[in-house]
Design a protein around this nucleic acid. Sequence first.
DNA 1: GATGAATGAGGGTTCATTCAT
DNA 2: CATGAATGAACCCTCATTCAT
Lengths: 225, 225, 225, 225
Amino acid sequence: MDSFANESFKRLDPEKQDRILKAAIAEFAERGYELANTNRIAKNANISVGSVFHYFNTKENLFLYIVQYGSAMIEEQAGKVVDDETLSVAQKIECLLRLAVKSSREEMTLIRLYHEMSSIGNQDLMSKLPRSMELFTAERYVKMLEEGQKKGEVRPELDARLAAFSMDNIFLSLQFAYACDYYRIRFQLYNHPEIDKEEYDEKVISETFQILKGALLVPDMSERD
Amino acid sequence: MDSFANESFKRLDPEKQDRILKAAIAEFAERGYELANTNRIAKNANISVGSVFHYFNTKENLFLYIVQYGSAMIEEQAGKVVDDETLSVAQKIECLLRLAVKSSREEMTLIRLYHEMSSIGNQDLMSKLPRSMELFTAERYVKMLEEGQKKGEVRPELDARLAAFSMDNIFLSLQFAYACDYYRIRFQLYNHPEIDKEEYDEKVISETFQILKGALLVPDMSERD
Amino acid sequence: MDSFANESFKRLDPEKQDRILKAAIAEFAERGYELANTNRIAKNANISVGSVFHYFNTKENLFLYIVQYGSAMIEEQAGKVVDDETLSVAQKIECLLRLAVKSSREEMTLIRLYHEMSSIGNQDLMSKLPRSMELFTAERYVKMLEEGQKKGEVRPELDARLAAFSMDNIFLSLQFAYACDYYRIRFQLYNHPEIDKEEYDEKVISETFQILKGALLVPDMSERD
Amino acid sequence: MDSFANESFKRLDPEKQDRILKAAIAEFAERGYELANTNRIAKNANISVGSVFHYFNTKENLFLYIVQYGSAMIEEQAGKVVDDETLSVAQKIECLLRLAVKSSREEMTLIRLYHEMSSIGNQDLMSKLPRSMELFTAERYVKMLEEGQKKGEVRPELDARLAAFSMDNIFLSLQFAYACDYYRIRFQLYNHPEIDKEEYDEKVISETFQILKGALLVPDMSERD
DNA sequence: GATGAATGAGGGTTCATTCAT
DNA sequence: CATGAATGAACCCTCATTCAT
């Protein structure tokens, strides 16, 4: 599973583990995989290069470790929302949207990492990443929609798998729009220039929620904008 | 504007220009920006490295030139669809979807290039890219929806800018799902395993179309699945 | 003299000493001095690196210790042959030849070690090696030939020292031909390809014996091939 | 064949080629393969590291190239002696001996290189070396002895192949004794301490010649020491 | 004494860019 | 203009050795 770090790393003082991961995340998120410098990571983590390679063996492993670590953190939160049985599908979607925006703001570097991982230069890196976490999330989204269809909340004519895929695409695009420079600029191309920064997150969430409701849910007679 | 190539490049025999661009596109698309090798590009284009740097000055410029060249090609086609006054918004969206899938299949390397450009390692590259082309497309999408709202085709309660953004996100995600390894695998996480390859493109298009119709258009009374 | 290992090593449980020496011999013989890895030696000997350096202080010392240990083992056997007063010089030479081949087969790693020690990269290592053992052997060979000359067995016109040197060269070359990859291949360049493997050792011994007899001994009237 | 250097190296100004080879030979001969430093070679050859790797691709190739280059130079001279039809076998052997000593003095670094190549750490290097040159020499030695047997110069009862092998071993050991530190010291173990340096080469040659004559040739009735 | 985590200097190799021809 | 040989800074990773426990 996560055999990217060795046992001695896991036995480390959590504060030290954190220092190392933070330094690595910062470096990879700021410069991308190829331009990230292991010596600099070590220096910023206040450990020796030797130790970095003792713990992770290769730069590649270090990268895969933090990507996995980061996506686990984010997907875990999404899982909680999806599994919450007290929420309607509409409420879950709204929570997920809110989570996407929030995580982009708070864990920006992790989102950037996720994007970096998908970058073309690292094709073979990618093939080494266990997709179990993503598969798990994908299946949960699909199940959420299927059960929503049974309950009459989700449009029955949709293919749950492809619908879940589109929904996830919206979430992911939103995260990139907040966390990655390129997508941020692209986002601004679509923004009302006059909009006030503070309240804009809320606006983005509510508008995207409208889009997703229309896309996925059966029209709610009791609801009016 | 496109001052990435010098005059002598533009005066070149078109066949030679093409050879150079093809070699550069292939290299950047296959290996990503950092791992792409200018010497190899020159060799594959059957010219000298000296000439490459004579035409483009830097690796960065060469990359920006082909990205711009590539996106122009793709956005031009999208523009034609949006500007076609004989089509309803629904028809335009379907055409754009079809175009996204088709371009992903036919111009895979250009899509990959576009993705690579957004990769984190190239932050400052990105800031040098003129976004005029994308801005133009964004504005066209917005206008399409606004006019659709006036005509009663598009849901009036939507913010046209954010709706256009979501729509474009769906298009872009679909293109990446076809062209980029990482997104392809992610896509497969959502696929019906039993689905037949041949007919699947059509299925993806029609299902995504359903999603976008629900998301963007006012329900059509005459339509039933 | 052999101050390469400290007292605590010598006080060690012989089984543990052996484990350490075996691991070191295997590592140095397989990879050569520079590529040998002290951490791996420790791991294979089931002790800590710290202990290795506690016992031997440096990698160099460890190497010198095992080289000395190994050559002592081999030269000891040669000494017994030379000192055996019941044998004629011819018989001694044949025994020494047989011993060279046998030790190459049985103590291949020690022979390799000996060769590695002579490798150029370790010039200053070499100067630290006490040559007492080799000197002792050299003197014994010389004395054997000198006494053979007195008894009329060895060609009287030979310089005993240079003759002993040539004889030793033949022995050493034979050992390398059996134990070291490079010399093995070189040996094969001279082999009859059709020769049967099993009986070949015997053939090598008898032929080389003929050579050495001709080189060193006075023709024996009673002997005919 | 000698594809260790690329075409552009071969097209180089001979003076420059020589400078590079000399620098490489000196470095490898002085420190051995593992400890040799490509940056230092470049500096001493007054070229850039980049050029070294342009010409030879890897440190390994550079090493193999100079080893081949060196052994070709030495074996070429040996070939001339063996092929000289005006000489008797005895004369050829004496010339070869003289050549061994002379080449050891004049091309000491090449001999050291040859020894380094056979060092254990470079097993896989070794397997990449074409042995054609050595095979050629081996076959010439064998043929020399076989023809000597037909002419009645060489002892008829000897196996020509194994005899040639022993002869070559004597030559090689002698070269190492002159060129390689370890073997030089071993050689001194056998030396008359009182011997005068100047005339000693001659003494070594004549004594070793006696040994080889006895080993290989039929006793010459007209010859007396 | 024993442990093994930590250190950090050092080296092979790459590649964008230059410039003499 | 075109060439392509030359440059050299930069980076991942190794491993002998140390030392706190």
